[in-house]
Design a protein around this nucleic acid. Structure first.
Length: 367
DNA sequence: CACCCGTGGGC
DNA sequence: TGCCCAAGGGT
């Protein structure tokens, strides 16, 4: 056992044995020692959901996906719309599209079993450097260097690496590979991520209870949270647009499908104008799906990753439910089952009840 | 490499 | 309130 293993790897694994998070997709160290094997399907599903997404947000989605599609064959046989609507609210919808494609490929070309090595995993849609390493090591106990945001933080602080991201990533991957033990590589990757989430946090790291505080070059120093160095972020521009919530008989709402690519690709929406830097929202009702008595219900303010949207929401009553090309009337009771992203739920909510304090839709139910 | 791609919670 | 962040991937 070399020095690094003695001073870093082993203390972190021991810490993990005692303090690991209990997560529904995880096989605990105790279970693992009893011979319980992780399910590659569950590991993969959780890793896709966890991309840039908090554990808290993922929990209910993971549970419902697993109930509805217990294995990769079930998911491969699912309808696209059902997968998209089940994913609605979780964000980054290309993940859902790739999830479905990946399941189909695993069933059609891999006999329904996930590959156990990084090279093959990376060929699958939605699986990149991180996820390939995570699945290989967590599901199959392969020696792979997992590098996520947590590990970038832990390793950069541990060695006080001052190269800014993303250039630093290569160095971190090498160091993570060196730290990863031959025994329990999967537990070590999860241990590093738990450490990053619970102790070596972005703000106010708890160095006093860290298992590697004696080795870490940043432990207890007031600049620990300066690591890793990141490039300055650009400010978010504002885009404006208008959305049209047509209310039909019995509260049905007119919806249409967005194109497969790009923002909210493949998701459902109410008819809207384009969203641009100029004041398209001020165009009024010229872009409405049909002429009628449209009234402004309010403005939804929604933050996307790279822009902020101010969406003027117009409501119109059309009890006769006129037809509109490429659109359909979604009955009030079906609205919760549509693949509506959060921004669209906000728009519909403010149209149905303009008096509500916030445009935020209720969790779980639309109305 | 730089940009696109959601959402909700914490401070 | 505004900004940061979260188990990144695709192009």
């Amino acid at each position: 056992m070399n020095h690094i293993e003695q001073t870093i790897t082993k203390p972190i694994l021991s810490w993990y044995d005692k303090h690991h998070r209990d997560l529904p997709w995880r096989v605990s160290p105790a279970e693992r020692s009893r011979g319980v094997k992780p399910s590659p399907y569950r590991v993969w599903l959780s890793e896709i959901m966890l991309q840039q997404t908090t554990v808290q947000a993922v929990r209910p989605y993971f549970t419902s996906f697993l109930e509805r599609w217990p294995d990769v064959a079930a998911l491969a046989a699912a309808k696209n719309d059902d997968v998209m609507s089940a994913w609605a609210g979780l964000g980054y919808y290309s993940r859902a599209r790739n999830l479905k494609k990946c399941a189909e490929i695993v069933v059609a070309h891999h006999d329904g079993r996930f590959p156990d090595d990084v090279i093959e995993l990376k060929k699958l849609p939605g699986i990149g450097d991180y996820t390939a390493a995570a699945v290989a090591t967590i599901a199959f106990d392969r020696h792979a260097a997992v590098v996520d945001g947590n590990i970038e933080r832990v390793v950069s602080r541990l060695f006080r690496l001052t190269t800014p991201l993303p250039a630093l990533k290569r160095d971190i991957k090498t160091r993570m590979s060196d730290l990863t033990p031959v025994e329990r590589p999967g537990d070590f990757a999860q241990a590093m991520m738990d450490l990053g989430a619970m102790v070596c946090s972005p703000k106010r790291p708890a160095c006093g209870v860290c298992p590697v505080r004696e080795t870490c070059l940043s432990a207890g120093r007031d600049d620990a949270e300066a690591f890793p160095f990141k490039p300055p972020k650009k400010k978010r521009p504002v885009r404006r647009g208008a959305a049209f919530v047509a209310i039909g008989q019995d509260g049905a709402v007119l919806l249409r499908r967005r194109i497969e690519s790009g923002l909210l690709g493949g998701m459902a929406e109410v008819p809207t104008t384009g969203w641009t830097a100029s004041a398209d929202g001020a165009l009024g009702t010229e872009a409405a799906p049909f002429a009628g008595d449209w009234t402004l219900s309010g403005t939804v303010r929604h933050i996307f990753t790279h822009f902020e949207l101010h969406l003027d929401v117009y409501r119109g009553n059309f009890p006769e439910r006129p037809a509109s090309d490429g659109s359909w009337w979604s009955p009030r009771g079906d609205l919760d089952n549509e693949a509506l992203p959060t921004v669209m739920k906000k728009a519909i909510a403010i149209a149905i009840d303009p008096n509500r304090q916030t445009a935020r839709p209720q969790k779980g139910t639309m109305i």
